[in-house]
Amino acid sequence: MSLCRSNNLLDLLIAMEYRLLCTGPVACIARPRERSFVVAELPELTIEEDGRYCVYVLAKRGLPSLDAARLLARMLGANPRSVNIAGLKDTGATTVQYACLPCPREPRELVTVPGRLWARLVGRTNRCPRRGVLKGNQFTIVLEPVSATPQEVMEAARGLARAKLPAYYGYQRFGTRRPNTHLQGLALLRGDLALYARELLGNPYPDEGPETARCRATLWRGRGCSESRLYEARVARDAASPGDLARLLPRGVLELQLAALQAYVFNRYLSLRIAHGYSLEERLPGERQVEGRPYAPVPGIGYRLGTGGKAAELLEEALEPLGISLETLAEPPPGLPRLRPYWRPVYTVPEGLRARILPDGRVALSFTLEKGMYATLVLRELAEPPECV
């Protein structure tokens, strides 16, 4: 099946340049979004009676995953850094995921913060769930028809069942409200302090709410602001040269920004691959074949690529407009974390996709995606941001 060029500016910003359906958006995510977008993690857990770690199933609403983990730690009297979560989930959604931490002497069975967080102890383990043990995510999303009837929206959704969708990294990978984390990673790699400061401290998202604008203006030091963003004040105050960034920024933030750059490079690679006329089912020289699917290389930071052929050529083509090369990725500035290269499928297939019309005329959509894939890959075929107004 041929793919269509996207004309959505947000798609183009993160190099998601092609889509499956050419008809354009027929719906939007119903408001309020946090009640119409539900995602649940599907982990592979081994529960052990005498395990040294406690596993909580954690439901959150309107909270970044890292803030939810810190809030859970505070409620349990634990070190916030000791809480392990297997994945970062959408802030503007209701999400169910797993949190793991060393068991306190008397673990609490239930932790609640009304309207924001609910966590229940489900057992003990000797190995905290990490990304590698996740099977995927189950999504349940309510759509509001916009330019089509409910029946047409349902039929369009059902047409995506078992479809081969380009396995792009979705918007959330680059920042839910300000999708520019990859540009921060690019600035780190190029040693460009001015670009980094502009992307980190400026460029508010067009529909930022007043609370977010207030927190940004105070560099997140005001009441009710995200504690996970306090490093911005250190950068604004103390960064005099590019070399200061690795010292001032938490390692986790550096890794997040560089990993977003890796994701952006993959998106550019995939879009170029499609633009050159290669089928999603065709393995190119330099790619791998895993269980019948082509896997493309995602270059590391601080590592040599380790592949060649057409795959290496496409990667160099993807990197050239960014002012970097595979050599730049292999030899980053001192102090930056090293991130390993990896392989990612060229396409993914939604499993168990179902759509039904609700009594109020909206359409409920449910499906499962393998780990590492985003609901955006399905939703962008039917609905474009922002949500209904």
Rank of each mutant, 00 (worst) to 15 (best):
L319Y: 03
R234Y: 14
K60R: 03
R130L: 07
R127S: 07
Y98G: 03
G352E: 15
E144A: 13
T94Q: 14
R273V: 02
G286R: 03
P385E: 07
L219V: 01
T140L: 14
T94Y: 14
P64L: 01
L10V: 13
L12R: 14
L72V: 03
E49W: 08
L13H: 13
L248G: 09
G132N: 11
E320H: 06
V363G: 05
K310P: 02
P350S: 13
A311C: 06
L249S: 03
L58V: 15
A69T: 05
R173I: 08
S147H: 11
S6C: 11
P332L: 00
R354N: 11
Q138V: 11
R120E: 08
T176H: 13
L382M: 05
W118P: 04
L101N: 10
P285W: 05
P166E: 13
R162S: 14
M16I: 05
Q257R: 15
K371H: 12
G224W: 02
E381C: 05
K135S: 03
A260P: 10
Y171H: 11
L21D: 10
R158G: 09
E155Q: 15
V265G: 02
Q262I: 09
E232R: 03
R158N: 13
R81V: 05
V363E: 11
V57N: 01
P250R: 04
C128H: 09
I141F: 10
L369M: 12
W220F: 15
A355R: 06
C22L: 06
T149V: 05
A148N: 07
A375D: 08
D67M: 09
Y231T: 02
P150I: 08
P332R: 00
R229I: 03
Y269T: 05
E152R: 10
R380A: 05
T112R: 12
Q97V: 02
G202F: 06
L254W: 00
R5N: 05
P386I: 12
D90C: 12
L322D: 01
G77Y: 15
C100H: 09
L160M: 07
P321I: 12
S226Q: 12
S241A: 15
G361E: 08
Q262V: 09
G222L: 02
